[in-house]
Design a binder for these strands. Structure first.
Lengths: 187, 187
DNA sequence: TATTATCCAACAACTTGTTGTATAATAAAT
DNA sequence: ATTTATTATACAACAAGTTGTTGGATAATA
């Protein structure tokens, strides 16, 4: 990883891509190192120059797609509707949906769910709750609920091939978050 | 599974229990059939009389702990506070928490999350929404959000050793569900 | 006594992680 | 600029472990 960094990087990316193609169709425990290297056209032992085992590949892919603060557009650059938590979440999700759909879905990695939520919590506080000064423990559980809900809903939506249109989905979640279930059940 | 059903059942339970002990400490891909049978004191090939592979054990355990309609106490037997969706959910969760904490947690099986939500949706509709006559598609997504939120929160709560007391947790989730975030952020 | 359910020993094929080696790219020396 | 030394990259081959299967021994039922 020193003499020829371009080649190394390409090899590593080739292996990661081959892994991802396999992971799209099989649970991780069914993926062998042999399959990965065959797909990417390398010797099996080359794999071990770059990764510890198959799970290590997944971990490294996950780290790459954890959202960073820089990726969140500044609120004042957005319309009022766009500047809502769920709309921002939808944007972030769509951007990496190729990875999120799988990682957060039925065949995914629940460990990633937690990493994802833990990465988003401070971003939400930073973006929407700068002058919140109350019980941070309760807030943490509220955020856990909301983020779990958003993740579940978006993943379900993608899994169902966006059977609802994007605006309707937004309306359901946003109005629930704003006014609770009553707005839904009554009338 | 015919000549001596008691013995068979005991063997199967022994194997399942041995599996669960291992699963509590290792991800499923690290569990070998050899370990399971050694722990339960059987020959390795006996395992294959009862299960297809290690994942089959997990599937069968999951089927056993999916909540059934019979397990939900009739609403009229409960106090007003007890008869709320989240309180019922807490009750169901606590009952099988030994399994749910793991299956729905970081080291769990995301496939179970979906099975669990799909099992609960009709129970919720049956219990709370008998005379709901609106857009069932939107309702489905609302339920997906709420159930994802409840599952995430409860699992987080157990994972953090119930750092919040049960009443406070209930209050956070219940008031959010009833009135949305505003009750939280304002004041 | 005959049948067959339950459990087990042994087998071939595959996967894993490691070690030692060939090749090709860089750096150093003439 | 050419040759030589160094070492990064990729690979072949190995031992150990796992998998799923087959055929047989034992013990319970008919």
């Amino acid at each position: 990883m020193n003499k020829n960094p371009e080649q190394c990087l390409r090899t590593k990316e080739n292996l990661m891509e081959a892994f991802w193609e396999l992971y799209s169709e099989n649970p991780i425990e069914k993926i062998t190192v042999k399959e990965i290297t065959q797909k990417a056209n390398y010797n099996r032992s080359t794999f071990y120059e770059y990764f510890k085992d198959t799970h290590d590949v997944l971990d490294q892919i996950e780290d790459k797609v954890i959202p960073k603060l820089e990726e969140i557009p500044p609120l004042n650059s957005l319309s009022e509707k766009e500047a809502t938590p769920f709309n921002l979440f939808m944007k972030i999700y769509e951007k990496n949906s190729k990875y999120y759909c799988l990682l957060l879905g039925e065949k995914g990695d629940p460990y990633f769910s937690q990493k994802f939520k833990n990465a988003l919590k401070p971003l939400i506080i930073e973006t929407f709750l700068k002058n919140y000064k109350k019980d941070y423990l309760k807030l943490d559980f509220l955020l856990e609920f909301i983020l779990s809900g958003m993740i579940g809903t978006m993943t379900y939506w993608f899994g169902k091939n966006k059977i609802l249109n994007s605006d309707e989905l937004f309306e359901v979640v946003h109005s629930f978050m704003k006014k609770g279930v009553n707005s839904f059940i009554d009338k």
